[in-house]
């Protein structure tokens, strides 16, 4: 019952968000700020996590497939496909749900409880449109770059293993990451990530926008945002994978 009510409330909020802005000038003033805050500011964490995961994937795959019958390119291939199919989209987005989701929910939640949203409404401005539309669009626009960037950095992580250890040779690794390459996987990952970007930014906005109470409730709102967007991401991951890879 409660979930039904929340879904309806969420749908109505999105209806308010996706309308023509009162002033495009104000939208275009907010948009680059959000690109910076939600997209560019996420680069460091994407870099750090991708490089480590790329390296770890390479080491794990190699160590767990000590079989002379397996071709030498298999480690690079598995690393690449794991990055392309799941890590750089789904896992990356789960991590970003934590970072970006809590950022959005606490920012909007704070504006709600300090009556800044009421102040916007009272001027006759559509507050949902003014605050949320730039966030959702900016995050969706930035997401493909983050995903492709994460793929590239992840591959670099594996390469570093080849360079600085004798677990795998650079030649084997490079052969592996080029072997039987399926460009469609990148497309599939990007499509997934666009959906995830929408989920993260809109769900977090929803929880922030309807926060009520004090600072503690803003904290609860951002926890709810992260938990629920993560669950939705996993669910939609299953759905889209079924649609696109079956």
């Amino acid at each position: 019952m409660n979930y039904l009510y929340q879904t309806g409330q969420y749908a109505m909020l999105m209806h308010k968000v996706f309308t023509k802005p009162d002033r495009w000038k104000m939208f275009w003033r907010q948009f680059p700020k959000e690109v910076e805050k939600l997209g560019l500011a996420s680069l460091p964490i994407v870099i750090i996590i991708s490089i480590f995961i790329g390296a770890i994937l390479t080491i794990q795959t190699k160590l767990n497939t000590e079989n002379p019958l397996l071709p030498t390119y298999s480690t690079g291939l598995v690393t690449r496909d794991t990055l392309l199919l799941e890590f750089s989209s789904t896992i990356m987005c789960l991590i970003l749900a934590g970072k970006v989701g809590s950022n959005i929910a606490s920012e909007i939640g704070t504006m709600r409880i300090t009556e800044q949203i009421d102040a916007i409404e009272i001027m006759g401005v559509n507050s949902a449109n003014y605050l949320i539309l730039p966030k959702i669009t900016a995050f969706i626009v930035m997401m493909p770059f983050l995903v492709i960037f994460s793929m590239a950095i992840g591959l670099v992580g594996g390469y570093l293993v080849g360079m600085f250890s004798d677990i795998i040779t650079v030649a084997d690794y490079l052969l592996g990451i080029q072997y039987a390459f399926v460009p469609y996987y990148i497309f599939y990952s990007v499509v997934k990530s666009l959906v995830f970007a929408f989920i993260i930014s809109s769900v977090a906005s929803y929880y922030g926008y309807f926060a009520y109470g004090g600072a503690l409730d803003v904290g609860k709102a951002s926890t709810n945002a992260v938990v629920n967007s993560s669950i939705l991401i996993l669910f939609f991951n299953l759905l889209i994978t079924n649609l696109m890879l079956n």
């Binding site: 009421d118 009272i122 006759g124």
Partner: peptide, 29 residues
């Protein structure tokens, strides 16, 4: 609401904007 002004219990100024930008906001809108 464009004929309405309101002063909130906690001021409700936009904390990401300066004093000047706060007052400019309704005008620019």
């Amino acid at each position: 609401r464009r004929e309405v002004g309101m002063l909130f219990q906690g001021s409700a100024l936009f904390d990401s904007l300066t004093v000047m930008e706060n007052v400019m906001y309704p005008l620019e809108m």
